[in-house]
């Protein structure tokens, strides 16, 4: 391994190389004082360099007993399977959609959801922010939600409507099981749902990056947050962005950070995306915005579209799920199963 791959400052790297230490193995057996002398740096600095260097090469030479110590930080597929069985999903409140998603939106994954204006992206985002709070007694996660709004399309009135419907559903569920509802009533007030949604309003792309950087600290203070929703990831990156290379770089950096957060805090990340038209094979077609390299960023990609008179969701990309589509509707109570056969009761 080369010294240049070490995460140390450029001047220290320069000093190492000019003193003849080009490979990691050449410094691994050095004492800090010797290194300090050779590089003409303080002993503390030398200790730091050695620490970084041993962190890089360490793990390769020590083999512990057990299944996962061959490569440091790795996990066997078997352990992962075990873990997946325990990780819960956030229901979308539409059982057809849950079915094709394998139970709902998964924790530890980044899910991207895109669609034309008015198809219900924000609705789905709000629904997830409410549903993540369904207590464990009812098969939910009992977590909290972070909602990062870049477009200003978050409507509190709508959140209240959806929360009210959700609380009502939980009461009915109680009655169905004839449970003693006293114990469960505590947290089913619609207002308490609203109290558990942390809302960030982001006005520029710099702020968007700042929020995502800051989330790490925020989440370690609020460990019960189980979903982070970004509505939408696209908006600020579509306005007046001349330097496309910079855009790609910032977006992929952001995606990596979000992925890391999802894994570290065991939460679901949901990114909403807009659509754009693209000229392909002789005709214009709809496609999700931000281009081809962004398409790799999320673990799962769901496209919402009109199929005749029905709203459908299509799994465009997923490492574990077969591509499938299912209908859903947006009702006054939130996202629900499609009831195309029977006429829906008018809301007014």
């Amino acid at each position: 391994m080369d010294v240049s791959s070490l995460p140390i400052s450029a001047s220290q790297r320069g000093k190492l190389i000019s003193a003849g230490y080009a490979s990691l193995s050449s410094i691994s057996s050095l004492s800090p004082s010797r290194l300090a002398l050779d590089l003409k740096i303080s002993e503390n600095e030398a200790v730091e360099i050695l620490k970084v260097a041993s962190g890089r090469s360490g793990g390769q030479d020590k083999i512990e007993s057990g299944s996962c110590a061959i490569v440091n930080g790795a996990q066997t597929a078997w352990d992962m399977l075990h873990e997946e069985e325990y990780s819960k999903c956030i229901t979308t409140s539409c059982s057809n959609l849950d079915e094709i998603l394998g139970g709902g939106i998964h924790c530890k994954e980044v899910t991207e959801i895109g669609g034309v204006p008015g198809i219900g992206k924000t609705q789905l985002g709000i629904q997830l922010a409410v549903n993540v709070q369904i207590p464990a007694d009812y098969g939910g996660l009992g977590g909290k939600a972070v909602y990062i709004d870049t477009e200003g399309s978050f409507m509190v009135e709508r959140v209240l409507q959806i929360a009210e419907a959700c609380a009502q559903d939980m009461l009915e569920y109680n009655a169905l099981l004839q449970r003693d509802s006293q114990a469960c009533l505590v947290d089913t007030q619609p207002k308490s749902f609203l109290d558990n949604i942390f809302y960030f309003r982001v006005c520029t792309y710099t702020e968007q990056i700042a929020v995502i950087n800051y989330l790490e600290k925020f989440l370690s203070e609020h460990t019960d947050v189980k979903v982070v929703i970004v509505d939408s990831i696209t908006f600020h990156f579509r306005q007046d962005f001349e330097d496309m290379a910079l855009r790609t770089r910032l977006l992929s950096g952001m995606a990596l950070k979000l992925m890391k957060l999802a894994k570290k805090f065991n939460l679901a990340v949901v990114l909403l995306n807009q659509v754009t038209t693209k000229f392909k094979e002789g005709s214009f077609q709809l496609t999700l915005a931000l281009g081809d390299s962004w398409a790799h960023a999320a673990t799962n990609r769901i496209i919402l579209y009109w199929n005749g008179n029905e709203r459908h969701a299509f799994i465009d990309k997923s490492p574990s799920l077969p591509s499938a589509s299912s209908p859903y509707t947006v009702t006054g109570r939130g996202i629900r199963n499609s009831t195309s056969n029977c006429k829906r009761v008018k809301l007014m």
């Binding site: 922010a129 972070v146 909602y147 509190v156 009135e157 959140v159 209240l160 207002k191 749902f193 609203l194 109290d195 558990n196 949604i197 942390f198 809302y199 960030f200 309003r201 982001v202 006005c203 710099t206 702020e207 990056i209 700042a210 929020v211 950087n213 800051y214 790490e216 600290k217 925020f218």
Partner: peptide, 18 residues
Amino acid sequence: GHISEISCPPYQTALSLL
């Protein structure tokens, strides 16, 4: 981290917003 924290807009709960 510090710069991000400072330039990050403050959060509100949906309830306080309402």
